[in-house]
Every structure is written in structure tokens, then in C-alpha cells.
Write a protein that binds this DNA or RNA. Structure first.
Lengths: 232, 232
DNA sequence: AACAGGTTGTGATATTTATCATATTATGAG
DNA sequence: CTCATAATATGATAAATATCACAACCTGTT
């Protein structure tokens, strides 16, 4: 991890439209001055369970995961989060500002750190900001809960199909992409074993639904994948 | 459902300490005047997916469930919610104020309806309220997400044990209680089939971990149940 | 180049869970 | 009260998934 020399001036930052849309100029400049932008290399850990969390950490570019580590060493990936995703809002002000799960970086990423204290003051002093913040919070937590409910109703093939479609539709916006995670991590996200994820991907390949070339996936028959995802 | 004649005067309402701790007297009186208290009988539906939701509906007494209805008619219970639980906060301001899941009443219950518009105004005008609201939101959504992650790492016996312990420790605060839900609903909450929930409860009975008398459950060997829950 | 360690891949087998069938017992409606 | 229906219960079997074993390949390091 290293702070970049050239920090963003925040003027055109996308996050501004998402949760900082209703800040006064001075408020925004204050945030921009106190923020810290940091660059993480693939695989680096941003924070771990038990660690104090006194910044709102949002993703500017790259890809990250939030995950639980279980007693027996197995992980559960709670969510894979794209730039400007609102998930980080769920990590702050929680559990006395001590992390209850881990965050690490799946692809080289730029993260923006904003002191929680600033966010707290904004909530207290700027009702419009507070409202935007609440809306985002509610949307993102319902989305995450929905994810788990959805998974619970799918079998192995359905889960793998669902995961591939999510990457295609919400992360890469195309039908050919490099898997940003290992088969093991897919398993940790959809609640299956690594072997069965590999096997299912191979099945899809044999059925000519997808092409596989190492980490590269090409979705050939999207319609069938959608069918399988819905219930297969 | 029927409105009760004698409405609560809100003076000693527990919710006041939870999310309305920092209201001015006038603000609180305003809420108290505009709220509506309603009584629901066991089994009644409070709202369904697709229905407009323009009230914050919190539970004063009784027990409720929030649940998804799947395409094939099967349900998934997202959470079972006790009085003054913060889960209702997640239901408002979401999806253009249209419900994305259902809510129904597990035991005869008294619900308090507060117009969302009042909440919105409070968020805008009272920073302390907004902050309390956000804290509760974050706590409850993390708790719900944690629930699903936890379940994913348990087998059938572990899930049933976990469910019984939750009822004992967070709902009834004792080791003897009446199950507020059918075996089918337990299955819908922990993601298993009804038959296997029944079978597992019978197993626990045969192993003298619990006693079963219809809906009444008595936990005899709590330590073993905890062990099974942790990983059985 | 050689090695260690992790990832991917596949088959055989064991285990877990779901499904189907059927009986018994509650519960609610009329 | 009586019937219909749902809930509980249990066994037999089928299906899904996990586990174990092993090989091939890739990647980074010395």
C-alpha cells in the first residue's frame, strides 16, 4: 500500500453524486482536504476483524471483497464490491468502530479514506446528506440480504450460473471477462466446495454454455445460463 | 386488524430510548399524535411485496416475521423480529417505498404506525436523530447479514440447534418456551426441508438434549446444544 | 533450472440432505 | 360434533453435495 503523490481533487468524483450530492462547497472541500487516497496491490488486506475502523473506505477503482473468517479457517465472502458501491457504509459506526469482518483487494485498487469523524459531523449538521446516506444504507443492506436469500433457493448449478451472470451484468458489463477470483473464492462466496465449483464450470463448458481459458470466461449461451440461474 | 381505542401516550415507550432518544418535546408529541396503533391477530399479514409502504411499522408487543415468497411458492423467512427490534428501519425509504418482501404476525401483536414523512423530516432537521437512526440501521443490517453467513457454515443439526438457542437467548430469555412458528416455518428460516427439521428435533429429543411437547420446547442440555450449534 | 506451494481439474466414494410415501395427530370451519 | 385440512412424525429411497485421492499445471523464488 502506498499513498499516491497526485491526489484526486474530488471535483468530478463519482461518489460526490452518490452520497455527497448535497454538501455545501466548504463541506466538500473539507472532506477533499482530509481524505487520503491509497493504492493497494492485488491480494493486500485493507483491514481485518478486530481492527479499529475510523475511516470510511470507498473504492475508486479496482475490485475488493469483504469476508468472514470462520473458526475452522474457512472463509465466507460476504460481498464482492465494485467502485463507488455503497457497501462500505455498512462497515462504519458499527461494533464500536471495530471491524467484524475483513476486507481485501481482488484487483489492484485505489481506495479513498475519509475520517469517520467528518461523516459523523455531516450527519449531524446536514440533513440532506444524512438522508442520502440513509437511502444508500438501506439500499445496500437490502441488496446484500437479497443476495443471501436468493442463494439459499438455488442448487449448485444455479449458484454458479448466478455468480457468472452477476460478474457479467454488474461488474464487467460484457460477456467475456477475466475471473477476478479463484475457484476457491467463488466457492466461498456461493457457499459450495471448490471442487464442485470447478466441476460445474467444466460442465457448463462441456454443455457449450461458456468457454473457459484459465481465468478467462466467455458466456456463449446467456439465455441458458439465465434459465439455470433462475432454477437449474 | 383493528385500531385500539386507548392509544399509548408514548411517554414511556421503549422505542423512545432506542431511536427517538434525541427528539425535542414538540417533535415527540407530534409523532405521538400522528402515530396509529393497531392490533393484529396471529397469522395476519401486515404488508405484502409490491404494496406501498408509507409508514414505519414497529412492533410494540408480540412477534412478527419478514419473508420472501419465491416463484415456486416456497417462502424464505428473512428474520423473526421481536418488540422494539430495529429491523423495520430497513423496510422504509426502499425501492420507492414499495415493499420488496412480506411481513406477517406470528403471535397476536400490537404494531405502531408512524408516517414515513415524519421520519424523513426528522432526519432532515434533527442531526442527533439522524445519527441514532443510522447507528440502528447499521447494527441491524450487519446482524441480519451475519445471520446468513453463520447459517451457511452449519449443517442441518447445527442450524436447528442455532435456531433453538436464538429463541431461548434472544426472544424468550428462558429454556422452556412455546415455538412461535411451525416446523415448516423453521425450515423456511434456516433453509432446510420441513421433514428434516422435524427429524432433527426428534433426534435431539431421543438424545435427551431437549424435551418436546407439541409446540413446547424445553432445552435440557444447553451445553450440548451450543456445541452442536457451533459445529454439529 | 529446480523446487515448493498453490490452483485447476477429474474420478471414486461417502455423507448429507431432499423427496416420496404414508400414518397419526392437531386445528379450524361449518 | 364432524369433516376437511394442515401439521407432525417416521421410514425408505433418491439425489445432491462433500470428501478424499491424485495428477497436471502454473507461479514465484532461490
Amino acid at each position: 500500500m502506498s499513498e499516491t503523490k497526485q491526489q484526486c481533487n474530488c471535483k468530478e468524483c463519482i461518489i460526490r453524486n452518490l452520497i455527497f450530492a448535497h454538501l455545501k462547497t466548504t463541506e466538500f472541500e473539507n472532506i477533499c482536504q482530509q481524505k487520503a487516497e491509497k493504492y493497494y496491490k492485488k491480494g493486500q488486506i485493507v483491514f481485518e476483524k478486530g481492527q479499529p475502523l475510523d475511516h470510511l473506505i470507498y473504492l475508486k477503482s479496482g475490485l475488493v471483497k469483504y469476508y468472514h473468517q470462520n473458526h475452522d479457517g474457512k472463509n465466507s465472502i460476504i460481498t464482492i464490491s465494485v467502485p463507488y458501491d455503497a457497501f462500505p457504509l455498512l462497515t462504519i459506526f458499527h461494533n464500536n468502530q471495530v471491524a467484524t469482518y475483513n476486507m481485501s483487494v481482488l484487483e489492484d485498487s485505489t481506495l479513498c479514506f475519509i475520517p469517520i469523524e467528518l461523516i459523523r459531523k455531516l450527519i449531524f449538521n446536514n440533513g440532506e446528506f444524512a438522508f442520502d446516506f440513509i437511502i444508500k444504507l438501506i439500499e445496500t443492506s437490502n441488496k446484500t440480504i437479497e443476495h443471501f436469500v436468493t442463494l439459499n433457493n438455488k442448487n449448485l448449478r444455479g449458484r454458479v450460473a448466478y455468480f457468472l451472470l452477476k460478474l457479467s451484468d454488474y461488474v464487467y458489463f460484457r460477456d467475456v471477462f477475466e475471473l477476478p477470483v479463484s475457484r476457491k473464492e467463488i466457492a466461498e462466496h456461493i457457499g459450495m466446495t471448490t471442487e464442485n465449483v470447478i466441476r460445474t464450470l467444466s460442465e457448463f463448458r462441456k454443455e457449450k454454455i461458456i468457454k473457459i481459458n484459465g481465468k478467462e470466461i466467455e458466456i456463449i449461451e446467456k439465455e441458458r445460463l439465465i434459465k439455470i440461474s433462475q432454477y437449474g
